[in-house]
Design a protein around this nucleic acid. Sequence first.
DNA 1: CTTGGAATGTCAACAAGACTGACATAACAT
DNA 2: ATGTTATGTCAGTCTTGTTGACATTCCAAG
Lengths: 160, 160
Amino acid sequence: MGESLLFLTDEQLRQGIEGMFFAYRGFTSAPDQILEGISYGRAHHRALHFIARSPGMNVNRLLTILGVTKQSLNRVLRTLIEDGLVESRVGVADKRERHLYLTEEGTALETRLSEAQRAQMRAAYRRAGPEAVAGFRQVLEAMMDPELRRIYSALREGGA
Amino acid sequence: MGESLLFLTDEQLRQGIEGMFFAYRGFTSAPDQILEGISYGRAHHRALHFIARSPGMNVNRLLTILGVTKQSLNRVLRTLIEDGLVESRVGVADKRERHLYLTEEGTALETRLSEAQRAQMRAAYRRAGPEAVAGFRQVLEAMMDPELRRIYSALREGGA
DNA sequence: CTTGGAATGTCAACAAGACTGACATAACAT
DNA sequence: ATGTTATGTCAGTCTTGTTGACATTCCAAG
């Protein structure tokens, strides 16, 4: 326990901060390269990811997950729907709600992006080894603020 | 070894991806709150951080670290210099180069931002425990692409 | 000494992606 | 019938990134 106080020097924390900064660039680079060619950006990728993860999700839930305004999401979603990557179906129980699904084409792009990003993640995980990965995941979860941690856990359970 | 193949299911990788996404939001939220009041953004924070880390660094090196164009950095740097947070000194050996230093005021803001972010990091590290942190750092380093990893290591050595 | 190239700064224009505010519509709930 | 919720949309703004063009300064090689 004395150790857990000792080892948290400012220098160690600073390295963690810089580590997050540099690693996040590596984390996004593979899908970014794919997105460069087509006329979509990271925002589109994020929307596709979470729609793929929880098909039939309504707009409000996606807004909460992404943490952006509805105007911001709507711009992205509109282009994806217009381009036939996402389908928006009126809710059955509540007709005000729109439920979001990937079309075949949307699934194809999401798979491409996802595979590139997973390949990058897989390589990092392999290099670091299973024990490091377990620790990595623990710290990531500890870094989230409570609401996002709940969303994260819900995705894990519901998205299987 | 069989284990290190087995445990990397797509679902595990997906959780790692979502973990990075959600954790990065937690990672930036504390300094973002401070920045809200004043007229600076994350780009200013990043510049201040790395100038504080390696005082006297020239512009080109900072460009490489941040991975943006000189025009983009210059806009940020100009406001910081105008506002008296950063000082730009002409190089001694090579007078084309500008070496960057924080002023007293710049140091004050950087310290404020840095302390907020370190507090957040410290809390996460404490929750996860020392072993998890070691693994976390290993995975982060494995996620960087080689050039950034070199920069990251150079900072660790030079910035003590 | 002249010339080429490197390091830096600056102007202009633009794009993505976030924001706020205001307003419209449809549908649920009371 | 009325208020609230879920969604969409229009208009305008901000930050942060981009490209392209050009000027200045200065080192270094001929």
